[in-house]
Design a protein around this nucleic acid. Structure first.
Lengths: 237, 237
DNA sequence: CGCCAAAATTGATCTAGGTCAATCGGCTTT
DNA sequence: AAAGCCGATTGACCTAGATCAATTTTGGCG
């Protein structure tokens, strides 16, 4: 929870130099607005494994993920965990209506976020309907993804879950790192299991089975899709 | 898909007399705006089993549910179905960014909706940031519910799923019909199964088991919670 | 290097929930 | 009130994936 490094703007970091500038919430802002917006956010770094915010915490900030990967999850009282999503650069986190976060967020590996204090951010949005529209757009897109994931969790087999996950993850990485059959998997097997509603053993066995069948190759820090068409066939089922 | 009855405004129906007036999207509108808004929507009735819109249909309308219950679902190519939610009066349906609906919606029993053509509705919202804020609020609330449901689908047992469903459904009905231990279940067992990621047999067996243990009583068109505390204990697990 | 801890894999076994197959009601229709 | 239907229930059996239990592999780190 204690961030490793904090860089307060303006201190070498400006929106106009920001990698996510044209893709994240801030893409809806014009240069003049951006100048003002700049003062609202500050960059914060987290180490792998650190928790950025926890479910039920009072929401004091929103976060724009600039670099790295995060796991977003909910815990049951007895410790069972459901990962509700992985966040990638450009994702905007923390919106809620209860005033409390409705999931927890951990850094997977090092992470850089642009942190906005809730109140000034809210004030800034208030007078900028186009920014509100952008935020709404992101919420609706997430809602659609959430529904897709419900189908996966409720109605798909382990093989289908894993194949679908690999394809969807690869697809999300396209706009960040370009298309490739080599799919980096920065999250652990346990994370994948908790995302897919499976156990770590089933995930591991499914990976090995796909490898035995020559569909994928398990490489350091990820997998390589040797036969993407076959993976798609498995996911379609 | 062919609606049973269409009543075009103004023809005996006005927003100011509308049952959902103070609770739905339109709660953000002042009397003057409401007068204008009135001309955008028309009431449409659907019989039970009718489909209001289908996944992948081009979105031409948004819908405000005025009366009745709807099931919102997605189908896999092989026919497996996941119900992503049940809609109740006050719910606003149809928002998306792809221009296509991302789920299908059927009436369960007779239903009345207030239908808005997409383009004029969009124009109306454009100049009304408070309406946009209201829509955003609804989207964020739904997103939170969707995440809760992911936890249920991915990490809970059949008993927990059924108990959680009964409590959540009862809770949703409070603001519509008042608090009660008698929970009407207008949807079929198959609908419940497809919502919880179970089979119809498991839902049926779980109901019977709860009844045998004196926790619920299965009554015509629903269940009665004989021991609500026990249901909550099962759901908490 | 060699040692340790954590993550991943693999194997053996078990079980919650699925599948298949009869009934059982409760309505509607005549 | 008999027939027919459709949803719901119940029973017998089966299996995908969980659980339990070792290894094996990997990644720091002195």
């Amino acid at each position: 929870m204690k961030p490793s490094v904090v860089t307060t703007e303006p201190n070498g970091h400006f929106c106009r130099d920001c990698a996510v500038r044209d893709f994240s919430v801030c893409s809806s802002l014009d240069p003049a607005e951006l100048k003002e917006f700049e003062h609202l956010g500050r960059r914060v770094l987290f180490d792998g494994g650190e928790t950025v915010f926890s479910e039920e915490d009072t929401t004091t900030s929103f976060y724009n993920l600039l670099d790295g990967v995060m796991r977003l999850y909910k815990l049951l009282p007895d410790g069972r965990r459901q990962i509700v999503g992985f966040a990638l650069p450009r994702d905007f986190l923390g919106m809620n209506i209860s005033g409390r976060h409705n999931f927890s967020a951990d850094a997977i590996g090092g992470v850089t976020v642009c942190q906005f204090a809730k109140v000034p951010f809210g004030r800034f949005v208030e007078s900028r309907p186009h920014l509100l529209r952008r935020i709404n757009e992101l919420a609706i897109r997430e809602l659609s993804q959430a529904r897709d994931h419900m189908v996966l969790l409720g109605r798909r087999s382990a093989d289908e879950k894993v194949a679908t996950f690999l394809l969807a993850w690869r697809e999300r990485l396209v706009s960040l790192k370009g298309a490739s059959d080599t799919v980096p998997l920065p999250m652990s097997r346990q994370d994948i299991a908790d995302y897919l509603g499976l156990t770590i053993e089933t995930v591991s066995r499914t990976f090995t089975k796909l490898e035995r069948h020559g569909v994928i190759e398990i490489i350091h820090g990820g997998v390589s899709l040797l036969d993407p068409a076959k993976v798609e066939a498995l996911a379609a089922a």
